[in-house]
Each structure stands twice: as structure tokens, then as C-alpha cells.
């Protein structure tokens, strides 16, 4: 086994996982909401970027912007449909409705983009770097750079800005926030739009690492669960560290045992954590 290569793979994977999961972390931390369509929104982000570049012929930066806008739009539509359930905090119904949304998105994507796999090539993914016996692509570096920048910016916004204070207030006590004159609806819409934007961005940035399929959402979302639960539900820093650990675990398990069984193995780790500290999962609301 090439140790350096596996560490690098793990770091790239880990940053990918953290970036994919961050929308969910904030959604759960601020709004106490769950979204099972997350994986399909990731798929949508990747396919919209592919469409913009391969079919329309626009450059990668514009594809990223289009993906993010598509993510915001999907988030908005979902929240519009579920607003009643959100205000009632009917978590169980919200969960099933988002599963339904994921299923619908899968159908829409299969019609819009066809059901064959595609390769999302970006200007970075075609740059190959060989350094001693280690190989990586420009896209790998781009993933790490974007993820680190994203997490730092988010941490600053949540901790320092008025927006962050508002979000933490709603997370802490939605009813009190209403009494204090906060428009909770707008916060919910904002959080959903942010989640959509973040995961679509992840799709357009992480998607190029593997062939993209319209059916990939069902399994993709599982990584997000692991990151969110292992990181302490709703914690931004926690989910970064959890993403990183999970990435390294996946890389080494894949190299040493078998890449086919990494999901079951990661699941065993998750179960161990849940059984060992079932009550210790809830992080401080607000995610800061």
C-alpha cells in the first residue's frame, strides 16, 4: 500500500464528504429539519453543471453559479410546499415528504438528462499532478480549497454576524424568536435555500471525481447522515472533523480490506457511536 497516496485520497474524500454534508448540518442545527432529498439535490447539482458545460458550452465558473441557483430554487420549492409542516415542526411528515421529493427529482433528472452515466469534466479535473509516487488532480486541490474556505466563512458568519445570531436564536427557541419579532418563515426559507445551494455546489465540485448517474442520490445521502451524526448533530466544526475522519477511514478501509464494503463498515462505526453515546449526539443548537 502506498501510504502517502491513501492519506491524500482520504483527505480529498474527507473534504468532499464535509462539503456534501454541510447544508444538512446547518439545516439540522438551525432549523431542526431533515432533508432526505439531499442526495438527489447533490445529483441535480452535478447534472446541471454537466448540462451547462457539455450541452450549452459555458465555462466552469458559470456552471457552478447555475448549479447553485438550481439548488436554491429546489430548496425554495420544497420549503414552500412544506411550510405548514415546518411551522408545526412535524418532523416525521417532513422526513417522508423530502423522501418523496428525492424520488420526484430522480424522475425529473432521468427525463431531463437521460439515464445513462456521464462524466463531468472541468478545467481542473484534467490537470494531473505526479509528485514522487503520489498522484492527484487539480480538481482534488480545488475541492480541498473550496471546502476549507466554505467552512471558515460559515463559521465566521454563524459566530460573528447578525444573521448568525438570528439563526442561533431560531434554533434555540423558535417561539421566543417569533415573540422577539423575528420572521421565522424567512429564516426557514433562508436555511433551506442555503442547504440547496451548498449541496448543489458540492455536486458541481465533487461530482467530477466519479461518473455521475441520476440514480446516485439514494446512496449518496448516506454519507451525509454519517457525517452529521458522527460530528454531533448540527455542529459545523464537528461535521468537518467527522467528514475528514470518515474520508480517511474510507480510503484506508478500501485499500486494506475492500472498497465494496466501506459503507457497511462505516455503518458499524456509526452504530458503535450511537450505542456508546446515544444521548450525547445533540450538539449546541445553532451549530457554532
Amino acid at each position: 500500500m502506498n501510504l502517502g497516496q491513501q492519506i491524500l485520497n482520504g483527505l480529498v474524500l474527507g473534504h468532499s464528504y464535509a462539503l456534501i454534508a454541510i447544508g444538512w448540518t446547518v439545516l439540522l442545527g438551525v432549523a431542526r429539519l431533515v432533508n432526505f432529498a439531499h442526495g438527489q439535490m447533490y445529483m441535480m447539482g452535478a447534472f446541471v453543471a454537466w448540462m451547462v458545460m457539455a450541452k450549452v458550452g459555458l465555462p466552469y465558473p458559470l456552471a457552478l453559479v447555475t448549479s447553485v441557483l438550481a439548488g436554491v430554487l429546489i430548496g425554495f420549492v420544497m420549503q414552500e410546499v412544506m411550510l405548514g409542516l415546518t411551522l408545526r415542526q412535524d418532523l416525521v411528515s417532513i422526513m417522508i415528504v423530502t423522501l418523496g421529493f428525492g424520488y420526484v427529482l430522480h424522475g425529473v433528472a432521468a427525463i431531463a438528462f437521460g439515464s445513462t452515466g456521464q462524466i463531468l469534466d472541468t478545467p481542473f479535473s484534467t490537470i494531473n499532478v505526479y509528485w514522487n509516487d503520489i498522484w492527484f488532480t487539480g480538481q482534488d486541490l480545488f475541492i480541498i480549497a473550496v471546502t476549507v474556505a466554505f467552512f471558515i466563512a460559515l463559521q465566521l458568519v454563524l459566530a460573528k454576524s447578525r444573521l448568525g445570531r438570528l439563526a442561533r436564536m431560531v434554533a434555540e427557541d423558535p417561539k421566543l424568536a417569533i415573540l422577539a419579532g423575528v420572521d421565522v418563515r424567512r429564516v426557514y426559507f433562508g436555511v433551506f435555500a442555503f442547504q440547496g445551494a451548498a449541496v448543489a455546489l458540492a455536486g458541481a465540485i465533487v461530482g467530477p471525481r466519479t461518473p455521475i448517474l441520476t440514480s446516485m442520490g439514494f446512496e449518496e445521502v448516506i454519507i451525509t447522515f454519517f457525517v452529521v451524526v458522527l460530528g454531533g448533530i448540527g455542529s459545523v466544526l464537528g461535521s468537518y472533523l467527522a467528514g475528514l475522519s470518515l474520508g480517511l477511514f474510507t480510503a484506508f478501509f478500501g485499500a486494506l480490506v475492500s472498497p465494496a464494503y466501506t459503507t457497511p463498515a462505516a455503518f458499524l462505526v456509526l452504530i458503535a457511536v450511537l450505542v456508546l453515546r446515544p444521548g450525547g449526539l445533540a450538539a449546541k443548537p445553532g451549530g457554532a
Binding site: 410546499v81 412544506m82 405548514g84 409542516l85 411528515s93 417522508i96 415528504v97 423522501l99 418523496g100 421529493f101 428525492g102 424520488y103 420526484v104 430522480h106 424522475g107 425529473v108 432521468a110 427525463i111 439515464s115
Partner: peptide, 21 residues
């Protein structure tokens, strides 16, 4: 066709929970 049926089934699930409690 499979994909439209998928959309119909997903929408049935969404509508029954979001609008027909």
C-alpha cells in the same frame, strides 16, 4: 413510462402528507 410514474408516485406521497394530513 417509468420516469413519469416515478414523479407521479413521489408527488402522491408529497401531496398526501403536505396537504391532506
Amino acid at each position: 413510462g417509468g420516469d413519469v410514474d416515478r414523479i407521479i408516485l413521489g408527488c402522491a406521497l408529497i401531496v398526501s402528507l403536505a396537504f391532506l394530513p
